[in-house]
Design a protein around this nucleic acid. Structure first.
Length: 927
RNA sequence: GCGGGGGUACCAAAGUGGACAAAUGGGAUGCGUUUAGGGCGCAUUGGCUUAGUGCCUUCGAGAGUUCGAAUCUCUUCCCCCGCACCA
């Protein structure tokens, strides 16, 4: 009898329809809602619309369903809502790549089965969002999730945006929104653009970084020459300035000063300073030979010619610090080779590890750099910058900064120079960035950008205090989260420019940024169900509505009471599950927004961080993995149950797992094994046999372990014990000839326990056994401690292990056993064992070591063994019970091997001296 | 650099003071078999050795604590992630 995976996967979701529904108002009609302490609200962090999902994504989602199914089957009412996150620029980028007819993008869509004759549609971002909203939900249904699909919402829906606007009014009311200057990447034609590796807004330069330059102002007559530097602390080593003799320079009015810089720089400055105006032209050749007053050292230094200065970088003028800047050193070196400026001496200023106090000279020598045109100067500069910054210390040439680490001196020197009006600040990009429109991206000062003030002391303190009491998994993240909450400072929460998102309610030219609009959203899931079923319209979602429902403020209306009741019933969230990428972004703001806005009894209770499934040597790449890693394709090959079991069991949820198809297949075959096992047990109908006591006891022991693990959300341990271990025990029962009706009943209970993990095959087996209804709606039984029979377990344990040992010996020795001897533990072990049962865990070791028999090395090891087994000790029967167990085993073995079986003490003169002879596990001799 | 995580056998991955040459799965090898859809079952899988045993070597490297260390401490090497407006 073969198990038909695909038939089951098609059949059961239809029968499960509606099981995920969670409206308590509906439940009221049928039966009373479970009490509030039996409610369970769990969701996964809604995924961003970024493209097709793959097997890795389904991992965390599946955990959510497994846990929710378990809760539902243990008497809880469960709210498991779903949604997606489409704001930001990912979906937008997707559409624009289709529009650009980006080859890899089109191939990717095709590989994932998108109907290419409708490709045109995907040029619209709305279609992209709709398409993936549907696609993701299909995946979740395919994987058998009993989610509340009626709760579905998406961050671009108008009702969601109403909610976000309410949230931002609240934040503003609490004084948590602040405006301050921000330097944004900006296209003169399109406005602000995102510069990130995905290159959604731009066509080139995604890896560019935004650098803060210090503009050093060199007095030259009534004007200032400005030179940009990333290393203001090196002013003490300045020897000269560099200008390109072939370049144009300009004089610009900045405020009431006149600065000299490259025309490109003047353009950039115009975005960052008030009243910038070019008033005259000059040139490199005019500047060369002049002397200017160097800031910081107040010394006249000459302007010298060089070739490496780039008018596009900084100001197009460079201050020269030959001791620490390889370019400067080589340019100076080039001049001095021609016999010029021999009088300029390198001034050592920083001592760093490995490079001494003239780092630039050393590294150029070491790398054998010949002149200032050598491209390797770039690497040399990076290296010196890194080691200088992290390990450098200012030396005696640096005035009051002598002895200070560079790391600190850098900011202090900068502040000092600025306060003396000898320096200024300018931002620039590390490489050229070109906008999608072809415009040149610059950095623009936004004087009044909006930030959420996560640095607020009270909020941080309250959040940390609350996090302490939360159920945060894994523990390492829990220990960590306090630091993360502390680290959170003001965070820009709105942007100008082209984004999907909600307009900031009181300043609508701003669009709320995508992290900030996904912090409080679990609360909205309660509301979205009412929007989806038509009971609420978008226009009903007023400020008063949300105040009434979420904050119990105001008068409200009768229609709102129902919503508020739901909210009070479900909130707070019991578990928010999300991938490890959320640890420093989503989870902290999730906590802080709840703490800021909602009353304390609505603050979240738990966080579960799941790690990733990774491909060999890195992420499963959506573009690379293609269709073979898609959830649909994977479900076909490995089965849904197989994948769910794989996720739950293959490793800890809190560690990355390497995706391996062979392993996934093995889980699939395991599912088949379960099916055929149940099929065999189906016919069991005999009266109880002596084996039944054992099986019942084993099951209850497993059930106890399972329940304990599940309550801690330790899915791996639960399924390991209940599915894998108990399956083996069922097989042993069968092998020993058990075939009772009672065993069949155990299998039914067993199936219930497996249902959260492998619901499809569980339903199929449930039906096969002729049970009524759906196994998904059954109650998982509680372990019955009174059914745990240590004697029965011991007898079978001994029988099973001894049988295996004998088989092993027979195979190796190739003999037909005539006589089998079982050696029970020597008296001293038995004594220690009995004594250990009466001791506490802490006192066990010292007390045992007092026994003279345990003084030997072997004795100490045995004591250690007892300590480790401590928790099992009280389950292990005493001497009389063991004797009885051994007799049972002897009876079975003599029949099985058709030989005499004798039980003797291991202290008798015969072998073995084995450590194997311990209470509960005899050593053997086969003759 | 700072912060966090990690390094276990052929590959993955359990394992936080004892009985651990180290679960489980994959792969490989062997045996059996009445083999539809990636057959199924059993065994072996650090070295030498015995039927059961014993010894040696091994959990990145080195040192230490301990009667006893994959596990605790220190030093060191290597890998991964985060460092902010990016989901």
């Amino acid at each position: 009898m073969r198990y038909d995976f695909s038939a089951a996967e098609k059949k059961w979701p239809e029968k499960w329809e509606g099981l995920g529904a969670s409206m308590q108002a509906d439940a009221d009609a049928k039966s009373a809602s479970p009490p509030r302490d039996k409610k369970f609200f769990m969701h996964f962090a809604y995924p961003g619309i970024s493209g097709y999902q793959h097997v890795g994504h389904m991992r965390g989602f599946s955990y959510t369903d497994i846990i929710c199914r378990y809760k539902r089957m243990t008497g809880h009412s469960v709210f498991f809502p779903i949604g997606t996150h489409a704001t930001g620029n990912q979906a937008l980028g997707f559409a624009s790549k289709v529009k650009k007819k980006d080859k890899t993008w089109l191939d990717y869509l095709e590989a994932n089965g998108y109907p290419m004759n409708e490709i045109k549609k995907m040029e619209s971002v709305d279609t992209v969002v709709d398409y993936f909203n549907k696609n993701y939900q299909e995946n979740w249904r395919l994987f058998g999730f009993l989610a509340d699909f009626n709760s579905f919402t998406c961050t671009t829906y108008p009702e969601y945006q109403k909610f976000i606007q309410w949230q931002f009014r609240k934040l503003n009311g609490l004084g948590l929104l602040v405006q301050k200057p921000y330097y944004a990447t900006f296209c003169p034609n399109c406005g602000p653009v995102a510069v990130d590796p995905s290159e959604t807004d731009i066509s080139r330069g995604g890896t560019a970084e935004k650098h803060e330059y210090t503009l050093l102002k060199f007095k030259l007559g009534s004007d200032y020459i400005v030179a940009a530097t990333l290393r203001p602390e090196t002013v003490f080593g300045q020897t000269n300035l560099w200008a390109d003799p072939c370049q144009e320079y300009v004089k610009v009015k900045v405020g009431n000063e006149t600065w000299i810089c490259s025309p490109q720089c003047a353009e950039k400055l115009s975005f960052q300073k008030e009243g910038v105006k070019t008033i005259a032209k000059t040139s490199g050749s005019e500047l060369i030979g002049l002397k200017a007053l160097a800031p910081g050292v107040d010394r006249e230094i000459p302007i010298l010619p060089s070739k490496f200065v780039d008018p596009n970088v900084g100001t197009g003028l460079v201050t020269s610090v030959p001791s620490d800047a390889p370019y400067d050193w080589m340019a100076l070196h080039d001049l001095q080779k021609e016999g010029k400026h021999k009088d300029i001496k390198v001034i050592p200023i920083i001592k760093s590890r490995g490079w001494g106090d003239t780092a630039a000279l050393r590294i150029c020598g070491q790398m054998k750099i010949k002149d200032q045109n050598d491209p390797r100067l770039e690497d040399a500069t990076k290296e010196i910058y890194k080691s200088g910054f992290h390990t450098g210390v200012m030396n005696e040439n640096c005035g009051e900064y002598a002895g200070m680490p560079v790391e600190r001196a850098k900011d202090q020197v900068k502040e000092w120079l600025i306060s003396e009006n000898k320096a200024d600040i300018m931002y620039d990009l590390s490489e050229e960035v070109v906008c999608r429109c072809g415009g040149h991206v610059v950095v623009k000062l936004i004087p009044d950008a909006w930030f959420i003030n996560y640095a607020d002391e009270e909020l941080t303190l309250k959040s940390k205090g609350h996090a302490e009491g939360m159920d945060i998994m894994p523990g390492q993240y829990k220990e960590n989260i306090e630091g993360v909450l502390d680290w959170f400072q003001e965070r820009a929460c709105a942007r100008l420019g082209n984004w999907l998102g909600t307009p900031l309610p009181f300043d609508e030219k701003w669009t709320i940024e995508p992290i900030s609009d996904s912090t409080l959203y679990p609360a909205f899931y309660v509301v979205s169900r009412f929007v989806n079923n038509g009971e609420l319209k978008t226009e009903d979602l007023t400020e008063e509505f949300f105040d009434y429902v979420f904050l119990a403020k105001g008068k409200g209306r009768p229609a709102w009471d129902k919503v508020r009741k739901e909210f009070d019933y479900w909130y707070p969230v019991d578990i928010n599950l999300g991938g490890k990428e959320h640890q420093t972004v989503h989870f902290p703001v999730y906590i802080m927004n709840h703490v800021a806005i909602l009353p304390a009894d609505k603050w979240p209770r738990g966080i579960f961080v799941n790690y990733w499934i990774v491909g060999k040597g890195g992420k499963i790449s959506k573009s690379k993995g293609g269709a073979s890693a898609s959830p649909q394709e994977a479900a076909k090959r490995f089965s849904v149950d197989g994948l769910r079991l794989y996720y739950a069991h293959v490793g800890s949820p809190h560690t990355d797992i390497e995706w391996d198809e062979d392993t996934a297949f093995s889980y699939k075959s395991h599912i088949e094994g379960i099916y055929s096992l149940v099929h065999r047990f189906k016919g069991f109908d005999k009266a109880s046999s002596p084996m039944d006591a054992w099986l019942v006891s084993r099951f209850n022991t497993r059930l106890k372990q399972y329940t304990k693990a599940m309550e801690k959300y330790d899915l791996r341990t639960a399924v390991g014990s209940m599915l894998f271990d108990f399956q083996r025990e069922l097989a042993w029962y069968e092998k020993r000839g058990g075939n009772s009706k009672a065993a069949k009943a155990i299998v039914m209970d067993w199936l219930k326990c497996l249902t959260p993990f492998i619901p499809f095959v569980a339903e199929e087996c449930w039906e096969m056994l002729g049970c009524k209804g759906l196994v998904s709606t059954q109650e998982i039984p509680a372990a019955d401690e009174t059914k745990i029979d240590a004697r029965a377990e011991l007898a079978e344990e001994i029988t099973r292990s001894v049988e295996q040992d004998i088989l092993h010996v027979i195979r190796l020795a190739k003999i037909q056993p005539k006589k089998i001897t079982l050696f029970v533990a020597p008296a001293w072990k038995r004594t220690a064992w009995e004594k250990a049962r009466s001791l506490g865990r802490k006192t066990l070791m010292p007390e045992l070591m007092k026994l003279p028999e345990l003084k030997s090395k072997e004795g100490a090891a045995f004591a250690g063994f007892l300590q480790k087994k401590f928790h099992e000790l009280r389950d292990i029967p005493g001497e009389a019970e063991e004797k009885e167990a051994l007799e049972t085993a002897a009876g079975y073995l003599s029949g099985k091997f058709n030989s005499k079986v004798e039980v003797v003490l291991a202290s008798a003169s015969k072998p073995p001296k084995s450590k194997n002879a311990v209470p509960g596990k005899p050593a053997i001799l086969v003759e």
